[in-house]
Design a protein around this nucleic acid. Structure first.
Length: 200
DNA sequence: AAACGGATTGGCT
DNA sequence: GCCAATCCGTTTC
């Protein structure tokens, strides 16, 4: 049921960003299980990608996680407030990652409501990367965790989207990446209400 | 040593 | 629509 770690060693991060749509992301914290269907992702393509934290081969305490073997989580703090969850992919020393930007709640909706303090009837509950992490209880303690463990993992429930149901667009909030900001490396499910709605 | 700005969100105008 | 919240790696003095 859980995707094996070998799934994440695929070296084409664009393929995986698209393939992760429809997969189900789980967390279990103190016996509280929550899960959501991934409906929006972005690919961050290693040392050649100006939008990546690992651009130019940068290695810091924060980015060290990205250089690990595919199949671990990369969680960092954005704007000092929001935890953003990424799936590290490819092989060791090839710092590729997929940012999970939105999920459709599947299991543990009441727990998500408590964590987010908004009703599950509102799509904002898991829309946007900061909201996903908060709803699933993901914080910095999840950084570098293997994605086939008992606290966080991803399952294949056989949900498949046709090509025409998947939209690609430029990534969000990466204007600083200059020409790389225009690359169509964001993937989302057409019409899904949980897909984030940036102001751009 | 200090300033800057970001893979964002939600509350107030 | 605007803006504050507020941590941390990077840049600049």
């Amino acid at each position: 049921m859980k995707l094996p770690l070998s799934y994440y060693s695929q070296q084409d991060v664009l393929f995986l960003a698209r393939d992760l749509l429809g997969k189900v992301l789980f967390t279990e914290i103190n016996g509280e299980r929550t899960a959501g269907i991934i409906v929006e992702t972005e690919a961050y393509n290693g040392i050649q990608d100006k939008a990546s934290h690992a651009y130019g081969g940068r290695r810091t305490n924060r980015t060290e996680t990205l250089y690990g073997q595919g199949g671990i989580s990369y969680v960092y703090l954005c704007y000092g407030i929001h935890h953003l969850f990424n799936v590290v992919t490819s092989v060791e020393n090839d710092p590729h990652a997929v940012l999970i930007r939105a999920v459709e709640p599947l299991i543990g909706k009441e727990i998500m409501e408590t964590r987010r303090n908004i009703p599950a009837s509102k799509s904002a509950i898991t829309s946007g990367p900061g909201s996903v992490a908060k709803a699933l209880g993901i914080n910095k303690s999840f950084n570098k965790k293997e994605l086939d463990g008992s606290e966080i993992w991803i399952e294949d429930h056989g949900i498949r989207y046709h090509d025409e149901e998947i939209i690609t667009s430029p990534r969000i909030g990466v204007a600083y990446a200059q020409e790389d900001a225009l690359l169509p490396w964001r993937f989302f499910v057409k019409g899904n209400p949980y897909v984030s709605k940036p102001k751009q």
